[in-house]
Each structure stands twice: as structure tokens, then as C-alpha cells.
Amino acid sequence: MADDQAVFAEGVVKRFGDVVALDGMDLTVERGQVVGLLGPNGAGKTTMVRILSTLLTPTEGVARVAGFDVVRQPDEVRRVIGLTGQYAAVDEYLTGRENLRMFGGLYHLESSYVKRRSQELLDSFELSEAADRPVRTYSGGMRRRLDLASSLIAKPSILFLDEPTTGLDPRSRLGMWAVIEGLVAEGTTVLLTTQYLEEADQLAQDIVVIDHGRVIAHGTAEALKDQIGGDRIEITVMNIAQAGAAAEVLRSLGNGAPLVEEAKVSAPVSGGSTVMISAIRALDSAGIEVTDLLLRRPTLDDVFMSLTGHAAEDEQQAQPKRGRKGKTS
């Protein structure tokens, strides 16, 4: 039982009736590390987080958090973790401050400490002005921040964040990233799930890509991007007859075979935007007229395309977003 491992999971299977949500998940998170669990809708991210936070019991396999078995020692696990679920879990009728006070009480913390800590969290999450208003009146972003603050009241050493920025506007998203980075700087271990490669890239040192309940790739953001070929330059020529010539130009610039689809020509490149300037110059001097020219960074879809051979969209089954049907939460 390695205590320096914040999370250790091996061969975790979770079945809901016929649905196999997790199909042999392995996951290790070292202390102080930030790991991003990346996957499309229905990949099993939430299920994994719920198992690690003792809300679900695995059908098969082992899962330990801070060295404690999630099935046999749930109370020990609960004492060291903080959880921010996919949907804001705060009381609508209570004020922000009352919510924090309630959770502090349920963690059995000293009440003078809870008072101090609540104020500290409200301040640092820019909620002090709204602190004494019922949560019902909060915006989505404020709710999300209060939700995160609630899971930090006891200063957990291990934090699970399930899609912490889904539904936030770009500004709130950046704010949330800053908060998470701050926690990490203080030494908190974080396991976060996301549907955005960009987010995993920004926050996590290590990314675990999952699909259909199993790990399909694992590595740093750089390694994953390299694995799928990195950036691509994509141009559309005015005259289809020039597509061949354009492909030759891209071959000389890029680092891989160009792909021609009618008037659209693309090729993998490296070097970011400088390659764009060279491309414009080369195309211009070759007398090729283009209607469109862009540099495409790999997206989650590209990662999926290359790793699984199917688009992430395929996963979006016709199930309600809140796939929990009332009581089976």
C-alpha cells in the first residue's frame, strides 16, 4: 500500500444492469500531481469520480484513495477528500455563508475555524458581496465557485473535480483555472475530468484519455498531441486544378504527407504561426490562389479520431444530460 499514491485504481469495473460504465479502469495519481481525466460524454468520467469519492461501489476491481480502500474504509476516504460534482451541490435556499457553515459543521470542524475559513474562501472566490444572499439568486459561475469553496472548507489534501468549468463563460473559466492552479501550488492533489483537451492541457501534468470505460491513452499533453500529429495547416484553393500544386507546396513546408479532398488541402506542420507566413509566401510565389487558410490545433475530436477511429460525437447517445433518473444518483 503505497501511501505516496493519492489515488490507485486497478481493473475497476462498474455495471449498471446491462450498461458497462467502467470496463477495467486503471488509474494512478501521485501525491501533489494534477491528473486530467479526458473523455467524451458517457465515457465513464463521472462514474470513476463517484467510485473514488465513495458514492458508488465498484462491481469489480480495487480502488484506494490515500491508501484507504473506498469500499472498506469509506469514512477514512471521506475525511481526506473534497468533491465538486458535475452539478452544483449547494443548498438553494441557504446563503453562501450558511452553506459553508453547514458543510463545516458536517465535517465536524471547530466553529470558530469554520467562520474564519468561510470568510477566507468567500473572499478568494469573489463571493463576499453575495455571501449573505440565498444561493437561488446566484449566477451559474457564482454557484460553481461556491460549490468548489464548499469542498475546500476542510482543506482536503485530495480534490476531485468533475467538469469544473462546464457551463461557465470564458472569463469565469479562466477564473476557475486560476483557482485550481492556486490549490495545486499549495500542494493539493487534483483529479479533474473534462471534455476539453485545452483544459486538461492547461491544468494537468498528466492526461488520461478514456472511452467506453477504459483508458485508451495516457501521457502529457505534448505527448498526446504528438501522438496524433500535432497542428495541421488547412487551405482551400480557388481553382481545383491547382490542388495538386498546393499539395506540393505544403509537402515542402510540413512534416508529413498532405491530404487532398477536392479543393481542400491539408498537411501536418510544426512551428505554429510562423509556418503560416511561410505558407502564404510560398503559395503566393507559386501563383496559387486560396480562399481560405487556417492552422488547426488538435481538438478532442482529433484525439478521438486518431485513438479510436470514431468521433467523440458518436458517444452522445440520446440520453438525458442528467442521466440519473431521479433516485439513482
Binding site: L55, I81, L83, G85, Q86, A89
Partner: peptide, 11 residues
């Protein structure tokens, strides 16, 4: 979702 948070607390 509040019930989930309650259940993840050592209460």
C-alpha cells in the same frame, strides 16, 4: 446533487 455532497462527507 446536494445529497451526493452529504454522502461524500465524513458525517
Amino acid at each position: 446533487g446536494l445529497i451526493d455532497r452529504f454522502r461524500a462527507l465524513p458525517m
